[in-house]
Amino acid sequence: MPLMWNWSMAERSDRGRPVAFRGGGFSPRPLGVVGPLVFIAVLAFWEAGCRTGLIPPLVLPAPSEALAALAHLVETGLLWKHLGASLQRLLVGWTLGTLLGIAVGFSIGLFSLARAGLAPVVAAIFPIPKIALLPLFVVWFGIGEGSKVATILFGTFFPTVVATYGGVDNVDRNLIRMGQSFGLSWLSIVRKIILPGALPAILPGFRISAAIAIVLLVAAEMIGAEFGVGAYILLAGSLMALDELLAGVAILSVMGLTVNWLIARLERFLLRWRT
């Protein structure tokens, strides 16, 4: 029995060693301080470059100058005028687009006729960059608020439709059968089974449509707007006031982050039943 002999020999010669660990990795750990640290480092490097003259002020103003421009905006009270105008357009356009999008998405998800009739239309219009339609909206809805809201509405409508009917399609059919087997009314099944079942698909759609809405907001405000973050940036750009331009861009970034945070809160609240 050579095998037995080898084994007992090995046992006698050493007392064994622990099996080497080879799992682990491939799972990102949260490192909270790294993000802000990188942010601060980039700003400091940038500021230092401007102060030492490494970066000419004509190419890129220092962060401190952009901050000063922002402070000026606050002092003169113009910030609230610009921000107010922008947020109003964003809110009206996005809300209407989202509500209409959910309604149409549900009809496509629930009714064969709506699906056959509307799904191809949606598929055809969805990929058009809505910025290209902006001049058309100016003709239709006037150069004032109408065209701006319409652009945002259109831009948010289509992704919401697609996300919603995708969500409705993905609701577990067994749950719907269960509802039917207990004699639930059609409306109960839609409200209590299909709507909450589609939410996990609809809410991420909100993120996409909100990002699109901000892009379209800036574009729309570049045509015939007195106030608004987009108008402010356009004016700053045409006057070569790069510090003001950067201040405007920073406002947009904060706006985007805030919207994302709000949607994340909403998701956490509405989808708290998930793991």
């Binding site: 749950l175 059968r177 087997s181 207990f182 639930l184 009314s185 109960s188 089974i193 998930r274």
Partner: peptide, 25 residues
């Protein structure tokens, strides 16, 4: 009345809510 192999419970409702579902109508 059915009892399903995959339970067919609504994940967004509590135990109580799942029972209440079939009484609400």
């Amino acid at each position: 009345t059915y009892i399903f192999q995959d339970f067919a419970l609504l994940p967004w409702r509590t135990v109580e809510g799942n029972v209440r579902l079939v009484l609400e109508d």
